[in-house]
Computed example of a mutant assay.
Amino acid sequence: MRIDILSCVPSLLDSFFAHSILKRAQQAGFAEVVVHDIRDYSTNKHRTIDDYAFGGGAGMVLQIEPIAGCIRKLQQERSYDEIIYLTPDGELMQQGMVNRLSLKGNLMMICGHYKGVDQRVRDLFVTMEISIGDYVLSGGELAAAVLSDAIIRLLPGVLNDETSALTDSFQDDLLAPPVYTRPADFEGHKVPEILMSGHEAKIESWRHEQSVKRTRERRPDLLQ
């Protein structure tokens, strides 16, 4: 998979993709993430990419010309399964959506900034609009990083144990059960005996019961 991210502050993403699972995924060739500076496609010598909104009002708007220039250059090099705009008014990001995106080949993500992008970017180029939550960030870079992480970790070969992702929260519309590791007894707080019984069927049954209980207590909406 290749993910191209369009940003006006690309350095914000440098560290995120340079460590841990995302770094190993790229080194092993399972994923490629390329961040593009929208300012490189500015149409003036000052490299400005924003302007005042028509009709007035507070805040600046990202211009269409630099974004369109970057998108069209990338489209000349490859086709994209989705061109995603990260925005608070997009479809709420959920695990099922991430699962579907992990089956794609090439994705492009556009990071908004200021008051967002010129609406014509969304009308002419964007195929998906995604929000990572009902709140507003300074820019779309963090949202692009979150979405990329959620997608890349699902790619075959990225995790050492590929079944790990299948038991994450939300994969079966339930929250994950509690997990424990050594020591078995910490200051009188003991690991449930069932987990040390070695009885696989009973352990799985216990975990399912705990998932349902935790979901009912914390996210009853998922059980709907």
Results as ranks from 00 to 15, higher is better:
residue 7 S to Y: 11
residue 175 L to D: 11
residue 209 E to D: 14
residue 175 L to F: 08
residue 13 L to R: 03
residue 31 A to W: 01
residue 4 D to V: 04
residue 56 G to E: 04
residue 143 A to P: 10
residue 126 V to N: 08
residue 52 Y to C: 00
residue 190 K to Y: 01
residue 170 F to D: 05
residue 122 R to H: 01
residue 80 Y to N: 05
residue 135 Y to H: 10
residue 21 I to W: 00
residue 181 T to D: 14
residue 32 E to H: 12
residue 82 E to A: 13
residue 13 L to V: 05
residue 66 P to R: 07
residue 191 V to L: 06
residue 95 Q to P: 00
residue 38 I to T: 10
residue 31 A to P: 00
residue 65 E to L: 11
residue 185 D to Y: 06
residue 15 S to F: 05
residue 45 K to E: 13
residue 83 I to C: 06
residue 210 Q to L: 03
residue 146 V to Q: 01
residue 36 H to R: 08
residue 139 G to N: 15
residue 188 G to V: 09
residue 157 G to P: 08
residue 150 A to Y: 01
residue 123 D to N: 15
residue 144 A to T: 05
residue 158 V to C: 04
residue 5 I to Q: 06
residue 100 R to N: 11
residue 96 G to C: 01
residue 81 D to P: 04
residue 215 T to L: 09
residue 9 V to A: 08
residue 175 L to W: 09
residue 168 D to G: 04
residue 39 R to K: 13
residue 89 D to H: 14
residue 123 D to Y: 02
residue 39 R to F: 04
residue 32 E to W: 00
residue 59 G to L: 11
residue 16 F to E: 01
residue 195 L to N: 11
residue 26 Q to T: 00
residue 142 L to M: 14
residue 117 V to E: 00
residue 80 Y to W: 02
residue 69 G to Q: 04
residue 210 Q to T: 05
residue 19 H to G: 01
residue 222 L to Y: 12
residue 181 T to C: 13
residue 218 R to E: 10
residue 209 E to N: 14
residue 92 L to E: 13
residue 142 L to W: 08
residue 45 K to D: 13
residue 66 P to Y: 12
residue 136 V to L: 06
residue 159 L to P: 03
residue 215 T to I: 10
residue 113 H to K: 14
residue 103 L to W: 00
residue 224 Q to D: 07
residue 138 S to A: 14
residue 125 F to H: 12
residue 63 Q to N: 12
residue 200 E to K: 07
residue 74 L to G: 01
residue 37 D to V: 06
residue 135 Y to S: 08
residue 28 A to K: 15
residue 35 V to C: 08
residue 185 D to R: 06
residue 172 D to R: 12
residue 24 R to G: 00
residue 164 S to L: 11
residue 222 L to D: 08
residue 103 L to T: 11
residue 144 A to V: 05
residue 53 A to H: 09
residue 223 L to V: 09
residue 5 I to N: 06
residue 101 L to N: 03
residue 189 H to A: 12
residue 156 P to C: 07
residue 122 R to F: 00
residue 42 S to Y: 02
residue 31 A to L: 03
residue 213 K to D: 12
residue 159 L to V: 05
residue 169 S to C: 09
residue 198 G to V: 10
residue 80 Y to P: 11
residue 42 S to W: 04
residue 121 V to T: 10
residue 16 F to V: 15
residue 132 I to S: 03
residue 55 G to C: 07
residue 68 A to S: 15
residue 114 Y to R: 07
residue 155 L to Y: 09
residue 175 L to G: 07
residue 157 G to T: 08
residue 100 R to H: 11
residue 193 E to P: 04
residue 188 G to A: 06
residue 200 E to S: 04
residue 70 C to M: 14
residue 88 P to G: 13
residue 197 S to W: 12
residue 124 L to I: 06
